[in-house]
Design a binder for these strands. Structure first.
Lengths: 141, 141
DNA sequence: CTTTGTGCAAATTCTTTGCACCAAA
DNA sequence: TTTGGTGCAAAGAATTTGCACAAAG
């Protein structure tokens, strides 16, 4: 039942544990780019011994091992995304809502500069105002 | 002498003040993607009445008005960049060094999703290991 | 005057650390 | 029985807030 989650953990050299499975499962069922705090609050009721430290530890480990992505589009807190396929993110500066944006192709950089570097993570962010907020507070734009 | 700085402020509807000029001037002379703290520490000696609050206020205002860019590649603190022309950023996850990366073209997103949105800011980040760190600690990569 | 900017101190918020306990191999 | 994972409480760091004073138009 939860084999795909365990598989994903193991594929990234992470030993499964109840907490790690729960956290990754949450991310794989909620592509809402949640914060550590949001994840904790959602899991806590059904896992009352869970601690925030473990959530932080686990998210860091998952990101480090490439099992999930760290999204830093929000200046306040880091967000997490289990969708590691290439896509961009949009965030509304007024209401804070976030959307995934499909991209045609991964942007290419001039390669000389990158020569000898090891790129582990590429992030493309768009910030601005969403349709709803543009309508409500057009003077902001 | 500092007319280009005052011009830039006014072009973005920001009234010039000694503090605002000093902060924008620092950014325009130091394309090092500094943090608020770094800027404060560099300006403080020659401006002993300057407060960190003002640095934060000013940077937020400058970014809001599009006079500078907020860089959130570093999970720990926001960095600032007076170069608002399209370019990408690289950050080494081991030593923390940052480089600008020229890009061939701004990446294009599938436009339907963006229709009706107002994009004010586009950021492209690459994270990984720089040449130096790759050589020193190859086992990290 | 009246509005806008500045700066101090305190508060808040997110995240990390130190350490003790538990659990699994 | 040794290693690695978890969780609590406390610490730390970046940023924001409330408020009073100063400056500029």
């Amino acid at each position: 039942m939860k084999t795909h989650i365990v598989d994903r953990l193991q594929a990234h050299d992470i030993k499964p544990s109840a907490q790690r499975i729960a956290i990754l499962e949450y991310l794989m069922e909620n592509y809402t780019h949640p914060t550590a705090d949001t994840i904790f609050n959602h899991l806590y009721p059904s896992m009352p011994t869970l601690s925030k430290t473990t959530v932080y530890n686990t998210l860091k480990l998952l990101a480090q091992q490439g099992a999930i992505n760290e999204i830093t589009i929000d200046e306040k807190n880091v967000r997490y995304d289990a969708d590691i396929s290439p896509h961009a993110h949009f965030r509304c500066k007024y209401c804070g809502s976030m959307f995934d944006l499909p991209i045609k192709r991964l942007p290419s950089v001039v390669t000389e500069k990158i020569d000898g570097f090891m790129i582990t993570d590429t992030q493309l962010y768009y910030r601005g105002y969403c349709k709803k907020c543009k309508a409500i507070v057009p003077w902001l734009c």
